[in-house]
Amino acid sequence: MTLLLFLAILDGLAYAAQVFMVAVGLTLIFGVLRILNVAHGSFFAIGGYVAATLGTWAATTALAPALALPALLLAAVLVGGVLGPVIERLILSRIYVKEHVLQLLVTFALFMILEDIQKLTWGVQPIFQDAPVRVLGQVEVGDIIYTAYQLYLLPGVALATLLGLMWFLRRTLTGRVIVAVTEDREAATAMGIDANRVYLLTFTFGTVLAALGGALASPTTSLVPGVGVNMIVLSFAVVATAGLGQIEGAMLTALLIGLGRSVAVYFAPEFEVVIPYLIMVAVLLVRPHGLFGRPELRRV
């Protein structure tokens, strides 16, 4: 029992780390662009697929073990660096001034397109590439043998992302510009800030984070059609529970939801998928704008 609970906690931490990578991009993009990108989960899935493909290719080269981990990062940068700017410039930039409902529909349409691109490119059979996990080997934690990849690397990357992001937004010029646009778009534009560049940069960066989340998840989960949709609803649950636009809060709720889910996996597997949403609904019933969110002032 205790052993199972301990295992559930370790799993939960690793899982929360993956979800956080996706959720933080979603919430950052929302904070700046005021668009909730329904296709964000697809970046997670495509990041995973590209990482698995790159990993399989890397395994055939002479530098096989050494390339396994860099391949993950490369996959994320490739996916985010290509898809992010293309989608932001070609599609999103046309809808910033449109009604909310149209913005949602457009990103939903993108989501439909990207889901099938995965099926057409990688097929519908599960894909699995665990070279990065094997490279790092296993460690003993008490009575449990656990992979170093899930124990150290995943939470480490998530924590580094959170700290790096906080540092970036508070201490660097570009970061402060992004924050300025988040807080008051009109005033920021009036001060001569190029909002379009900020949008492009933020969207691309958020996309890279989602793809990195997918790349990091790929060695421990098999990729099948539908991972993208599961991830968008889950990361939305994380972001909504924290409050839209809340970055530090998203880490906390990712932990809450990640742990809740993995405990369910061990003790009530039928309800694995339900737990995260129960947590979300419970929080939203008490705090309609999330744990850390503030209500937007209604206009008279």
Partner: peptide, 29 residues
């Protein structure tokens, strides 16, 4: 009673979440 308190993004996504929960329950039970 729950989702009518929300608009736009929340309204759309909460509905999606409820339907996916129901889907997984239909599949697992």
């Amino acid at each position: 009673l729950f989702v009518a308190r929300y608009r736009d993004i929340f309204f759309g996504m909460l509905n999606l979440a409820f339907s996916m929960v129901f889907y997984s329950l239909l599949e697992k039970l």
